[in-house]
């Protein structure tokens, strides 16, 4: 048995009457690269938003390293509107803001890139080091934390060198080409020293060569930074190449899961993707 890093139990996310995630359970084990795939609007990004505390799940629980970090059941108005199942299974209510989730060791990137636009490449990554500081506002303003600051700067520099962004470190983050911005988002996430990395369509907008480079890059940082990776992706080549296991959702419901070969030949997956032309990038 391998160690669970992330486990979702019966997660349902309902926006008003819209059920975006429907009774989803999945797990990601230590050191794995696991993919979450599905047609557009299937609810993939919503899964990330639930895990990271951006949305409060309507029902279900999230475990990190076998500790329950989030839990909810339908409350108030939702009690009547709830269209899912397992409503009695989760009596606890545990809510965490995204910054708390990140400080537990879960970092993410965004499908629609969200860099700090007034900052340089270097500052973007350095800013992500803020949560690791131990000094208070007075000692930082009076520069009593200079050792910590210097450390953070050195680590930031190392990260930029590792990701091949050191030559553009003084440039405005938003002036970088699209592909580099995606790497910068990964650098920024890594700066928080995560154990679990959530990547939301990191290859979106990349050509086949770039996608291939990204594939081997993700594998290499997994080993180098001792990461577990949970990734949402549309590029099937990347997904099939990189994944230890794959979860497939459609309309918020799990329709298939297994190793790449199993999923590739699954009747339900082929049906869900039929007529949906998003692999043609």
């Amino acid at each position: 048995m391998s160690e669970n890093v992330l486990r979702l139990e019966n997660i349902t996310m309902q926006f008003g009457g819209v059920v975006a995630i429907n009774d989803l359970s999945l797990e990601v084990n230590k050191g794995e690269i696991v993919s979450l795939i599905g047609p557009n609007g299937a609810g993939k990004t919503t899964v990330f938003n639930v895990i990271t505390g951006v949305y409060e799940a309507t029902n279900g629980a999230v475990y990190y390293e076998d500790k329950m970090i989030l839990s909810n059941h339908p409350q108030g108005k939702m009690k009547k509107m709830y269209a899912g199942t397992n409503a009695d299974k989760f009596p606890d209510v545990i809510v965490k803001t995204p910054d708390r989730i990140t400080s537990l060791g879960i970092a993410r990137t965004f499908q629609n890139i969200r860099l700090f636009k007034s900052m340089t490449v270097f500052e973007n990554v350095l800013t992500a080091k803020h949560m690791l500081k131990t000094s208070n506002v007075f000692s930082t303003a009076l520069r009593l934390n200079y050792k910590e600051e210097e450390n953070a700067r050195n680590e930031t520099m190392q990260l930029l060198e590792r990701l091949g962004l050191d030559d553009v470190k003084e440039e405005l983050a938003t002036s970088l080409p699209y592909g580099k911005q995606r790497y910068l988002e990964i650098a920024r996430a890594l700066a928080t020293k995560p154990k679990l990395l959530l990547l939301d369509e990191p290859a979106a907008g990349m050509n086949p060569q770039e996608t291939m480079a990204l594939t081997s890059f993700i594998k290499s940082i997994r080993d180098e930074f001792d990461l577990t990776v949970f990734i949402i992706e549309h590029h099937m080549n990347l997904v099939m190449d990189i994944s230890d296991r794959i979860y497939v959702i459609d309309f918020g419901k799990l329709i298939s899961h297994g190793v790449p070969e199993e999923v590739q030949n699954d009747e339900a997956v082929i049906k869900a993707y039929l007529g949906v032309s998003e692999e043609d990038e």
């Binding site: 910054d99 990140t102 993410r108 969200r114 700090f116 800013t127 992500a128």
Partner: peptide
């Protein structure tokens, strides 16, 4: 400044 630039990203970076 991170909060000014993008609240959601700032929060995701542990702020």
């Amino acid at each position: 400044k991170a909060i000014r630039d993008d609240e959601i990203a700032a929060e995701a970076m542990g702020i």
